[in-house]
Design a protein around this nucleic acid. Sequence first.
DNA 1: TTAGATATTGAACATGTGTTCATTAAAATA
DNA 2: TATTTTAATGAACACATGTTCAATATCTAA
Lengths: 189, 189
Amino acid sequence: MSANDLRVIKTKQALHNALLTLLSEKPLENITIAEICRVAKVNRGTFYLHYEQKEGLFEEYFQEIMEDLNNSYEEPYRAVTTMDKNQIDPNTIRIFHHIERFKMFYRIVFSKNVPLTYYYMLFDGIFSLLKRDITIHKEIHDEISIEYYSAYQANAIIGLIIQWYRQDFEDSVSTLNKQLAAILRIGEK
Amino acid sequence: MSANDLRVIKTKQALHNALLTLLSEKPLENITIAEICRVAKVNRGTFYLHYEQKEGLFEEYFQEIMEDLNNSYEEPYRAVTTMDKNQIDPNTIRIFHHIERFKMFYRIVFSKNVPLTYYYMLFDGIFSLLKRDITIHKEIHDEISIEYYSAYQANAIIGLIIQWYRQDFEDSVSTLNKQLAAILRIGEK
DNA sequence: TTAGATATTGAACATGTGTTCATTAAAATA
DNA sequence: TATTTTAATGAACACATGTTCAATATCTAA
């Protein structure tokens, strides 16, 4: 199953388009593999040649979105990790922009009947951004594991996003940034 | 479908037992509704009279576990919310004990092919514990939304638990408590 | 204890899942 | 272009899903 083979590319493209079409009509949970294949005019057996579940297909899109997240952070993500109020600049906190940009996707990611996989993809994305930055500015006391610390910070931010999602992303990005900045400031007063 | 009806109670009990039996053999994702019904000697149509998915059945167990979590916190959960290092007492942080006590369940909750529902049940459980406590000790600056703040703190703790889970809960409860205490101390130095 | 209420059953049906295998079609390469 | 390689197909299989409905068994309340 060579990834360069034109046949493979064509098949995957058809499946991608079919999934997008169906996603505009109903949630991922109500979409069946048989349905995707019917729309894509691809044999169901062929689907299983490339993916195990419909989730695997969705995952391919998610990968691209995760790249956007990484690209948003060419500069280190100082705000959370240094815990220094002088360095907190909400404008450098671009993650909320990223979520808002792809909110149609994140509505799926955070819906309760979807598998945890996507949550972990987001978690791992933020986790590595933070971990990289924490490693660079290692002002952290020895007794703290960088792994635990990164996991704590990464998931805390996702906590804000969950709260945001539950109001259907009604608040503005700047509101989220302000909330985060204010929360970080508490620890310093 | 009266909840007091002996027939209902018997049916649900049989389904519960069947699920537990099967869970000791294989992960939830590989268990089918048909299988549960075969083991429970309950008609498959009867299953659908009470639940929509096998996940709904699992959820009933989870409710009981969430009650344990709540019972662990008769006293307010001061450690995280007050952000005062003098009040941080790892022994009052009982959540990690709770997770360890039910780690066979949490291995399922955090596995990647399981729906987000359970994650949210845990999140909501911790969220309300924190929110209740934050409301009591409202030393929080006005500009912060209690909702966002609680979501942030609750999910941060779950972040630690995810990291813990990913090493199959090898670290001790006291290690987790120390990590949390140390992380909270950073914001104050 | 009996009569009425209702939960459970078994059967059937259309559809989805996941897999197999020989056949066919389309691509790579020589 | 001709040959080789391999992806895609269609058919078939056993099994799961989700639903319906009349018949039955079992509970509750009078």
